[in-house]
Design a protein around this nucleic acid. Structure first.
Length: 631
RNA sequence: GCGCCCGUAGCUCAGCUGGAUAGAGCGUCGGACUUCGAAUCCGCAGGUCGCCCGUUCGAAUCGGGCCGGGCGCGCCA
């Protein structure tokens, strides 16, 4: 089951087949070669069969002098083989060197095997990328688990705030990563449209419509007044004293979700998410759980399981303390009829189980950590295996303003919404969607386990030197080369041909092919570890490699496309290596393909052109410059 | 007090299923434009990987203990 253990794969023929069909790049070429050599040594009795249990590395060394790829196999096997690492390395070395595609093998340090490969091994990556196009790196679709991914689920009693953005973006990126590794993902937003907060919103709107202050604990931000105006104009009957119970609340929630046309304050949660490329398959209403009797039904199951406890004061509790939780949790208050949110959540998760998913994933902010044990207890009652339930906690976003802690409050009227931040960046960058890209990049450039400090002012204004534009620029630049090739020289990237590929011999070109070859592994790891930031760091590195190469070519008086200093010479075409240009175009196109695939996994757009902003011209009052508090 | 997360360059962060000389961006300083897109590239400087023990050929990485910070421990959601 452990990936990396060649033994388990050899033991299972099907696993071998799977592995062979799974392209894993240059490192995997060495891994296979090592396995072949070890099998030879086992067969000839020079190594005990136990070496098959070993887990060894095959990776690109940090320094170029250590080869294209290196493995620690001799060090790992030394103990079980009862030989010194360097002696074992010496046994493996000549046989490994004889394997196809391997040019040279050195023994180094405590027993590393440093390996240099033939160019064909790298060039094969180009073939693979061309074959699969944007599907490169992705597992076959719909071969994995059926997953229910619940995220955001923010209270619809207000617009989505920048802090909600992290959960939304992280959850969406996890969903994309899971899909890329073959899982079938259903995205769901649980709407808390029931209970006290909703009632408070309705009362606050009623008060605002009458020109009064909100009730104790109510909502006082600007959007409440906008809601009140809309209700007055479009559904004033809901404000009457004899209006049906809950009508006003339903109208308010409806507007918070779908927005009020033309209003910046109430743009609608669905629209906010949609503008960031985040779409849900389901919007599950808490209120409907009650309306359809699912809460009562769930509690009946709990009662039958004997996990309910009547408290002395009339309240009803779930004996969650029999599990991991540290105390029992009340599900019906001591008035004997009011359910807590936990009652709804029990029913909701019971419903999820009933829908037959193989895996349930909840994305929650770290402040909900204490809630996990409760959910596990509930899922236990419904017979759902704990291993198939995951809670992904992301650490919180703390807001700063000009370096000082910034407290948001629903009554303070100082809410910073996602829309507000993305709008400002859109405007500064002169492109709709730039803000969403920037926010996505910012949140995905940190591990979910890392707390984030977000400075509002910098988030809104510091945008032209935002690293997201570096990535996008890299992509646009690749597109520009391909565009120019076609428009000026009538050349298009050719299909893979061995003769063309053989023209790719520049060390940087081979190194980048190696990098492209590791992309499928990055996708797999990002999905398996629920760590989309790994994809982002991969792309960052890819971009750096290319831009560095591109400048280096210039220094070396070389170029992908013929330059004016060449074409201005009469008869220049006689000395032009046209096949090399074609090979490089194919190579550029492969990089662009992986680039676009990776950006898609992050939900960041991959523009083919970027309009360069006039740097200082509109420089957002740049006199109080720099003070790089954040990022 | 208990639980989870974090502590790596001046700042923001990667690296953590143990591997060779710990990386990137921003910032500082110095270089590279005849632009296949310079929103770029190259270089210099910058580190007790919070501290202490332990595990072993080898620890930023694993285990234990401390120190410091964030969050949680509601009949709120």
């Amino acid at each position: 089951m452990r990936s990396g253990a060649f033994a388990s794969k050899l033991a299972d023929p099907a696993a071998i087949e799977y592995r062979r069909s799974e392209f894993m790049g240059v490192e995997e070429h060495l891994r296979e070669s090592v396995v072949t050599v070890l099998e030879e040594l086992v067969a000839s009795g020079q190594l005990p069969p136990e070496v098959r249990t070993a887990v060894f590395s095959s990776e690109r060394p940090k320094v170029a002098e250590h080869g294209h790829v290196a493995t620690n196999v001799a060090m790992v096997l030394a103990r079980v083989a009862k030989v010194k690492p360097r002696d074992l390395a010496a046994t493996i070395q000549p046989r490994l060197q004889a394997q196809p595609g391997i040019r040279q093998v050195d023994i180094a340090g405590p027993g590393f095997l440093n390996v240099w490969l033939e160019p064909q091994v790298f060039q094969a990556v180009l073939h693979e990328v061309q074959q699969l196009g944007l599907g490169y790196g992705r597992a076959p679709a719909a071969t994995g688990e059926r997953v229910l991914l619940e995220f955001v689920s923010a209270n619809p009693t207000g617009p989505l705030l920048v802090s909600h953005g992290r959960g939304a973006i992280f959850g969406d990126a996890v969903g994309r990563a899971l899909e890329a590794s073959g899982h079938r993902v259903t995205r769901e937003y649980y709407i808390n449209d029931f209970g006290n907060q909703v009632r408070l919103l309705a009362e606050s709107v009623r008060a605002a419509a009458a020109g009064k202050d909100p009730p104790e604990g109510g909502y006082g931000a600007a959007y409440v007044k906008v809601l009140a105006e809309w209700i007055k104009a479009n559904a004033s009957e809901a404000l009457k004293d004899d209006a049906p119970e809950g009508l006003l609340a339903r109208l308010c929630i409806g507007r918070m979700l779908d927005g009020i046309p033309g209003s910046d304050e109430v743009r609608g949660i669905r629209n906010t998410l949609g503008s960031m490329g985040i779409f849900f398959d389901g919007w599950y209403s808490e209120e409907s759980l009650h309306r359809w009797g699912k809460v009562d039904a769930a509690l009946l199951q709990l009662r039958e399981r004997g996990v309910l406890l009547e408290l002395e004061d009339g309240a009803l509790a779930f004996k969650t303390s029999e599990g991991e939780d540290d105390k029992d949790r009340v599900i019906r208050k001591n008035d004997g009829r009011t359910y807590t949110y936990f009652a709804s959540d029990i029913a909701y998760h019971g419903d999820k189980v009933g829908r037959g998913y193989e895996r349930l994933i909840n994305v929650l902010g770290a402040d909900h950590h204490g809630y996990v044990a409760r959910l596990r207890a509930a899922l236990d009652v419904f017979g759902f295996e704990q291993q198939r339930f995951e809670v992904l906690l992301y650490q919180l976003v703390s807001l700063l303003r000009d370096g000082q802690p910034y407290k948001m409050g629903k009554r303070l009227g100082n809410l910073i919404t996602i829309d507000e931040v993305t709008d400002e960046i859109d405007q500064a960058a002169g492109r709709k969607g730039a803000g969403a890209d920037a926010l996505r990049y910012y949140y995905l450039s940190r591990s979910s386990e890392q707390p984030i400090k977000l400075d509002i002012e910098i988030a809104k204004q510091q945008n032209l030197d935002n690293p997201v534009f570096y990535l996008q620029y890299g992509h646009a630049r690749l597109c520009a080369i391909l565009r120019r090739a076609k428009e000026v020289f009538g050349l298009e990237a050719p299909r893979f041909g061995v003769a063309h590929a053989a023209k790719l011999v520049h060390p940087d070109e081979l190194a980048m092919l190696q990098q492209l070859g590791s992309y499928p592994r990055v996708v797999r790891d990002a999905a398996r570890e629920r760590a989309p930031h790994k994809t982002l760091f991969f792309l960052q590195e890819l971009s750096q490699q290319f831009q560095s190469y591109f400048t280096r070519l210039k220094v070396e008086r070389d170029a992908i496309l013929p330059q004016s200093w060449q074409t201005s010479q009469p008869g220049w075409e006689a000395t032009w290596d046209r096949d090399k240009t074609l090979a490089r175009l194919a190579w550029v196109d492969a990089i662009r393909t992986v680039y676009a695939a990776g950006l898609w996994l992050l939900g960041i757009s991959a523009p083919e052109r970027m309009v360069r902003p006039s740097a200082e011209a509109d420089g957002v009052e740049s006199d109080d410059d720099a003070e790089p508090a954040t990022s």
